[in-house]
């Protein structure tokens, strides 16, 4: 079942004549990992950043088409491109979380980092906060390492730990979808392995879209893969189909390493 449905979606950055994304049609399926691959500049990050409209922090972007998000309680799809009010943006971003290329711990303690999303969502009860922070840190596979230093600054963690902290922080607010924008590109292989395991674990609870440069990563963890090239979605299918018998020539060239 799709949790997000992207239909005829085009996107144009401000001050640019031609669209950076052209007529994208794809689905993010519930409790699955969907990978977006393609060479640099193909628009995969642009597409990902459209899915929680983080683009709108900067003015002048142009959206065309429809991106639908499943509303959990009514089981109806809603077009997120219709959103105009700030409180609707806030709700959208609480439902669709995001993890960035570099770890982004906030300049505060480990506990406050994870509790941040909960606090701004209006949870004030201390014992509830503590319980949810602990649960999120366990979900983020970080609890054992940080349980005795929750009040220390998050800046003191290693890069891999910081990235897992960011994932725990995103998980804490119980989003429906989490978008990962090359989450392991700044990490060493061991930390990368830990994050990959974590993603596979996480998909029980959330749906995941991940942009990656690393094709092995896509083939290891994803259920669906989209191959993009120069703003077009070339092929979107189950991961084993993309990697074992791609229908398009361009996809085959890319995954066999002939370009990109």
């Amino acid at each position: 079942m799709p949790v997000m449905n992207i239909k005829d979606f085009s996107f144009t950055y401000p001050g640019v004549d031609h669209p950076s994304l052209k007529n994208i049609n794809m689905k993010i399926r519930k409790n699955k990992i969907t990978a977006l691959i393609g060479p640099s500049g193909c628009g995969k990050s642009t597409l990902l950043r459209s899915m929680n409209r983080i683009h709108d922090l900067y003015p002048g972007n142009k959206y065309d088409g429809i991106i639908e998000l499943l509303k959990a309680d009514t089981q109806k799809m809603e077009n997120i491109l219709d959103i105009k009010k700030e409180n609707e943006f806030i709700q959208l971003r609480q439902r669709v979380g995001m993890i960035f290329q570099k770890p982004t711990p906030f300049p505060m303690s480990i506990f406050d980092n994870v509790a941040y999303g909960l606090k701004i969502a209006g949870i004030k009860d201390k014992s509830e906060l503590e319980g949810r922070v602990e649960k999120a840190l366990k979900d983020g596979a970080l609890w054992k390492e940080v349980q005795d230093r929750l009040n220390k600054s998050a800046m003191g963690l290693s890069g891999g730990q910081q990235q897992r902290l960011c994932i725990a922080r995103a998980v804490a607010v119980k989003p429906e979808v989490i978008l990962f924008d090359e989450p392991t590109s700044a990490l060493d292989p061991i930390s990368t392995g830990a994050i990959e395991e974590l993603l596979v674990e996480l998909k029980k609870d959330v749906s995941i879209a991940i942009v990656t440069h690393n094709m092995q990563q896509a083939s290891r963890i994803s259920d669906y893969t989209a191959f993009m090239y120069l703003g077009d979605l070339i092929e979107f299918d189950k991961t084993e189909n993309i990697f074992l018998n791609p229908k398009e020539k361009q996809t085959e060239d890319y995954i066999t390493g002939r370009f990109g």
């Binding site: 983080i54 995001m98 982004t104 701004i120 969502a121 922080r169 995103a170």
Partner: peptide
């Protein structure tokens, strides 16, 4: 951006 992505104003 990551704070905005948490739903911060």
């Amino acid at each position: 951006e990551s704070a905005y992505a948490m739903g911060a104003t």
